[in-house]
Design a protein around this nucleic acid. Structure first.
Length: 850
RNA sequence: GGGCGAGUGGCGGAAUUGGUAGACGCGUUGGUCUUAGGAACCAAUAUGGCAACAUGUGAAGGUUCGAGUCCUUUCUCGCCUACCA
């Protein structure tokens, strides 16, 4: 008996699939479609375990849906613009395009070696002109629709990547990619008007029924809608400032007003920019503003001006105006009115600068002399000390009535404020999609005429130059527009733009005219199942939702606002970490053990290794496992099996050598049992046999379980079902079966295992001379229930025994059976039965009177 | 500070949604075969107890004939997010 030669066999079937274009998808209005999409990879060099997990999950689903008769679209592409290519190119003195294409060819080969059911005819790569020329057209269309604009403002400048970052790309004051502390810089930038759709982006989160709640909450928080009002405060002082506008959600606490605070970037700061004390204060703010400790400590500091602000509800009251570090220019109007009693930040500030703390809300159970000490009161209750507002119920009534009063007095108005800011898309990089804009000699903006698209990147480039390499390309920059000599924009688009519409491109990847064909998109969109990491919960997913709105805005021919019908976020792949005695990270193959308990560094027995907890695989911790290596050693089916087996897909999974080996053994064992089954089939006759019914039952129950588990993404349980199947076959195979029954049921068993281990299943089909089935078997409900059932017998709620009996046996009969079972009956006899609870085919609970 | 999620054997994790807790895998133990085995196969494996039996899903209460599952309180851990006015 030959061992299963996974290398030969997997290659054979992978070639078979390619030769037969097994996964080619074509639009067919008569067929129900299923668009399965996994987040496409950045071609960084080679695939990692996260990819393996992501694409295996999607592949299992695609194969399942396809066998169910859906017309499945399961494409793959490359998010191939971006910084790493540029950095790698600079270091190795090659062109980003060459570096990228080399990586793509390596990774494509690796993905193919996993046996994924991908329609490679639809492959796209965002750095190809074929792709980004359409993106440039979208940009121009959006410009024409007023969804793109240019403005000068402060940007987040990443000093390492030498580029601008969008707000959502700054994490803890650091660049999301480089980790460098972000600086503030004033630049002319292109913006997408994403905030125009704030309401819609928030509102229709409700319609995304099959998105994780967590992701929806994160997006809702990011959009950050708050209801309140803007209030104009009159300003007195020695400067030409008449008014400062504030946004507040708590206008009802206006009588607790004791200072007004503005951001150091507030427009009025221009009157102070020559004041050295103010400069010093501003420096201090920018320093403390970003460090984690300062945020945690939340120290409030202020710079007092000579200005006084008037309380609009109480003209006699004037309070000082401060610059304060806790006021952000990005939110509202960059100015807040301080009410220390009912806002912790304001209270901290007031206590530091000895400002009055006036209580204007009291909790329901407190008296009117309720006083605030070190803790602001933000809860509900009743308004006090506020003249005509006294007695209003906090929060709803008080806020609404106060806003009405403010509007009547014309000192402000009801406002809904969003935290979401427009998306700055300019990047000062070479390796990205050129922005299709040019400037004439007077600096006027011109869009590039459509017949001059695409704007390509210059092929030869000096990447060693500091800043944006395109700035030096004087010849490339020249363009004539309507006879005017212009210079092209040198900024390129944020690569998140590339990934904001790639799912549309997959619908018609070869369309020459436009980014996507409307009919194709109407058929395939929306994506039925999108699968990817939770790390894109905000950025990529929000941008894509915006992009759909931008494309369909003022568009009579195509409408769709939500690109992803269902979203599944898979967990990370983790591995133990190892450190030697000098605290250096070690990779799994740098350690050794003699007893399986104590580990030491390879070839260095005195260097004991300490084992750390499983953490997500990263190069810096050296706890990565190379998928290519695993596929080489164990085969694609075994790797697919293992990556799904140990944990539910949405949770983190821990990679373990033992687990990998167990999956490999399963493949080998199954191959052996397949050969036993083959012999069994050959020696069986067409006579009915004792084992037939049991096999039919097992098979149908298996199909039923796998169906349910597939629908619910319980892929780890499917693997358990597959092990159960092996154990069952191994147990019953010594018995006899009707030849036809054995063939039919074994085919079904193989078919339901095929989404996970397609190569082995195909081979088993072939060696058995089964015609290869593409149909998912249907459950025959007749075989789902057993005719013998185990009834749990409880006395007073405690399990006392089990009675095996015929299905649907009535209570009376079961009571008779119990009386014949000494072990159970002994606790009943001579006692009075109070009540009996009976659940058919399940359980009987007898309550005694004592 | 805010939000979300999770606590089940030595470990990863199952549990038809209120009805036999611990499927399946790893690990461990014993056995068979073998020159050997880090191979293969067989068996055992929640805890205590020879046993009958008792206890057992982070803790404490509650609802119920019956709770891992529902309710209340509480503890611990993880992730995300943060001066959002």
């Amino acid at each position: 008996m030959e061992r299963y030669n996974f290398k030969k066999i997997e290659e054979k079937w992978q070639n078979f699939w390619i030769r037969n274009k097994s996964f080619k998808s074509e639009m067919n209005l008569k067929l129900k479609k299923f668009y399965c999409l996994e987040m496409f990879p950045y071609p960084s060099g080679k695939i990692h375990m996260g990819h393996v997990r992501n694409y295996t999950i999607g592949d299992v689903l695609s194969r399942y849906k396809s066998m169910q008769g859906f017309n499945v679209l399961h494409p793959m592409g490359w998010d191939s613009f971006g910084m790493p290519a540029e950095n790698a190119a600079r270091e190795n003195d090659l062109h980003p395009k060459d570096w990228t294409e080399k990586n793509i060819s390596v990774m494509k080969k690796q993905l193919k070696s996993l046996g994924l059911s991908i329609d490679w005819d639809r492959e796209i790569s965002t750095c190809n002109e074929d792709y980004f020329k359409h993106q440039q057209l979208f940009f121009i269309e959006m410009f024409e629709k007023g969804l793109v604009y240019r403005k000068e403002n402060y940007v987040n400048w990443d000093p390492i990547d030498q580029t601008v970052l969008a707000n959502e790309q700054v994490i803890d004051g650091k660049g999301w990619r480089s980790g460098a502390v972000v600086e503030r810089k004033k630049l002319n930038q292109w913006f997408f008007n994403i905030s125009k759709f704030s309401e819609s982006l928030l509102e229709s989160l409700n319609s995304l029924k099959n998105w994780p709640k967590k992701v929806k909450t994160m997006q809702a928080n990011w959009i950050g809608k708050s209801f309140g009002c803007e209030i104009n405060f009159k300003i007195k002082g020695d400067l030409p400032i008449n008014e400062i506008k504030c946004f507040t959600t708590r206008p009802d606490t206006l009588f607790g007003f004791s200072f007004l605070a503005v951001s150091v970037d507030h427009p009025i700061s221009k009157f102070y920019q020559d004041d050295p004390k103010f400069k010093k204060f501003k420096d201090e703010c920018s320093k403390t503003g970003t460090t984690e400790e300062s945020i945690a400590q939340g120290e409030k500091i202020g710079f007092k001006t000579n200005l006084l602000a008037t309380n609009p509800l109480n003209e006699n009251e004037k309070v000082p105006v401060y610059f304060a570090n806790f006021v952000l220019m990005d939110y509202g109007f960059g100015a807040v009115f301080g009410c220390p009693a009912h806002d912790q930040r304001d209270l901290d500030f007031a206590l530091k600068y000895n400002l009055p703390v006036r209580t204007v809300v009291k909790p329901p159970e407190e008296n009117d002399d309720f006083k605030i000490n070190n803790e602001a009161y933000t809860g509900g209750g009743v308004i006090i000390n506020s003249k005509f507002l006294d007695g209003l119920k906090v929060p709803d009534e008080s806020i609404i009535k106060t806003i009405n009063i403010i509007e009547e007095k014309k000192i402000g108005k009801k406002t809904i404020n969003f935290r979401l800011k427009d998306w700055g898309v300019s990047r000062q990089r070479y390796w990205g999609c050129p922005i299709p804009i040019a400037y004439d000699k007077d600096g006027n903006v011109h869009t590039i005429p459509k017949n001059k698209l695409p704007i390509k990147l210059p092929e030869k480039i000096n990447l060693k130059a500091k800043g944006n390499p395109l700035n030096l390309e004087n010849e490339w920059r020249k363009i004539s527009i309507n006879g005017l000599e212009c210079l092209k924009e040198t900024d390129t688009l944020d690569t998140f733009v590339d990934s904001s519409w790639y799912f549309l491109r997959f619908c018609s990847p070869n369309d020459k005219e436009y980014g996507f064909d409307y009919d194709a998109a109407k058929y395939w969109m929306p994506v039925d199942q999108y699968i990817g990491g939770i790390e894109h919960a905000i950025l990529h997913l929000l941008y894509s939702r915006f992009f759909m709105r931008a494309i369909t805005y003022k568009n009579e021919n195509f409408s769709l606002s939500e690109p992803f019908e269902s979203l599944f976020t898979q967990g990370m792949v983790c591995h133990e970490t190892y450190k030697d005695k000098n605290n250096n990270w070690l990779s799994p193959d740098e350690i050794e053990t003699n007893d399986g308990k104590n580990f030491f560094k390879k070839n260095d027995p005195n260097n004991t290794v300490s084992i750390g907890p499983a953490e997500s695989m990263s190069k810096s911790k050296k706890n990565t496992i190379d998928p290519a290596e695993m596929i080489k050693n164990y085969g694609a089916d075994a790797v697919r099996l293992f990556i799904l087996s140990d944990s539910p897909p949405e949770k983190d999974v821990q990679w373990s050598e033992q687990g990998m080996l167990a999956s490999y053994k399963f493949i080998q064992k199954f191959w052996l049992i397949n050969n036993r089954i083959k012999e069994k089939i050959e020696t069986s006759t067409n006579n009915n046999q004792k084992g037939d019914l049991d096999l039919k039952k097992f098979t149908n129950q298996l199909i039923n379980k796998i169906d349910n588990n597939l629908e619910k993404f319980n892929y780890n349980v499917i693997i358990a079902n597959m092990h159960e199947t092996y154990n069952y076959l191994n147990k019953v195979l010594s018995g006899q079966f009707n030849r036809e029954v054995l063939i039919e049921n074994y085919k079904k068993i193989l078919t339901v295992m095929s989404p996970v281990i397609p190569h082995l299943v195909n081979e088993c089909f072939e060696v058995n001379n089964f015609s290869i089935s593409q149909k998912w078997p249907l459950v025959n409900k007749k075989y789902l229930s057993e005719e013998t059932v185990s009834i749990v017998v409880q006395i007073g709620g405690k399990k006392r025994g089990i009675i095996k009996t015929k299905k649907d046996t009535e209570e009376k009969t079961i009571m008779d059976l119990i009386s014949k079972e000494d072990r159970i009956n002994k606790s009943i006899k001579n006692k009075k039965i109070n009540k009996v609870f009976f659940v058919k085919n399940r359980l009987i609970n007898i309550l005694l009177n004592d």
